[in-house]
């Protein structure tokens, strides 16, 4: 038998694809897939929620308070005063299906939340930071806006749906965290839209109460000054529109409706 030596052939076992092409295709393709999954989830959650009326929601959650709420002392003047303000502001939204409840949470992060059943939670850090009643009124009005657009219950539904998706992704090998990241970023786009809508309603409430919208955006001013971030990059990665953009939008909105940008402000009692 004659042995004929041949050189090994190249390219039989190795695909002729540049690794960066492979990476780009996968990253882009999977981003599209995960964004689509999130869009479908959001669509279905919104669809289901049209069958849950505000009245049903109020009935279910009328006495509900989150377990992890750290209450402040019972005679806290900030709490009673804010409660009174909520009641006053609620009069400007007479057909609201909610009977608003306010709880103050002891926390070092300035924040306010709208929760199912008309529950508004503000943190002590926020109450310590606001300078005037007008400023606080806008924050509360903004939360009213979430209730009016039913963002709070939508957020809950989306949270549950995304939670299931994330859990499934965590079980999958390797790329799970990538999917979670993309889904999360897609979701943030929705959140930013919700925040802007809530801002508009908050401004309407403030105007109805005081006859002007002065001090409404003071809180965002403070957040920017305290360096909670205002760059384009940070905006992209955050759930809320950046402070500067929000202020501009608010001013524009006020001018459109002819609401005075200045007026006498009401000091806080604490």
């Amino acid at each position: 038998m004659k042995f004929i030596a041949r050189k090994p052939r190249e390219g039989i076992n190795v695909s002729d694809v540049h690794p960066l092409t492979e990476a780009g295709t996968l990253v882009f393709g999977l981003s599209v897939i995960f964004a689509a999954i999130v869009l479908v989830l959001v669509f279905f959650v919104d669809l289901v929620l049209t069958f849950v009326s505000s009245e049903t929601e109020v009935r279910i959650f009328s006495t509900w308070i989150p377990d992890d709420l750290i209450s402040t002392e019972a005679d806290d003047v900030r709490e009673s005063e804010t409660r009174a303000l909520v009641e006053r502001l609620a009069r400007h939204w007479p057909d609201s299906p909610y009977k608003f409840r306010l709880e103050v949470s002891a926390s070092e992060t300035p924040n306010a939340m709208a929760l199912p059943g008309g529950l508004i939670i503000v943190t002590t850090a926020l109450l310590d930071r606001v300078g005037t009643e007008n400023e606080l009124a806008f924050v509360l009005g903004h939360e009213f806006g979430h209730f009016r657009n039913r963002d709070h219950i939508r957020q809950l539904g989306r949270g549950v749906a995304l939670g299931i998706l994330f859990a499934a992704l965590r079980f999958s090998k390797g790329g799970g965290s990538f999917g979670i990241g993309i889904a999360d970023l897609t979701m943030r786009g929705f959140s930013r839209k919700q925040e802007s809508d809530a801002d508009s309603f908050g401004l309407e409430i403030v105007y109805a109460e005081y006859g002007h919208v002065d001090e409404s955006w003071r809180f965002f001013d403070r957040m920017i000054r305290d360096d909670y971030g205002n760059s384009d990059l940070v905006t992209y990665f955050s759930t809320h529109p950046s402070g500067g953009d929000r202020i501009e939008n608010l001013k524009f909105h006020a001018r459109q409706h002819g609401w005075p940008l200045t007026g006498p402000t009401t000091p806080l009692t604490w």
Binding site: P19, L26, G174, G175
Partner: peptide, 11 residues
């Protein structure tokens, strides 16, 4: 390679 293979593992 590990990361790209991980992404590939999803589909």
């Amino acid at each position: 390679k590990r990361i790209i293979a991980g992404l590939r593992g999803l589909i």
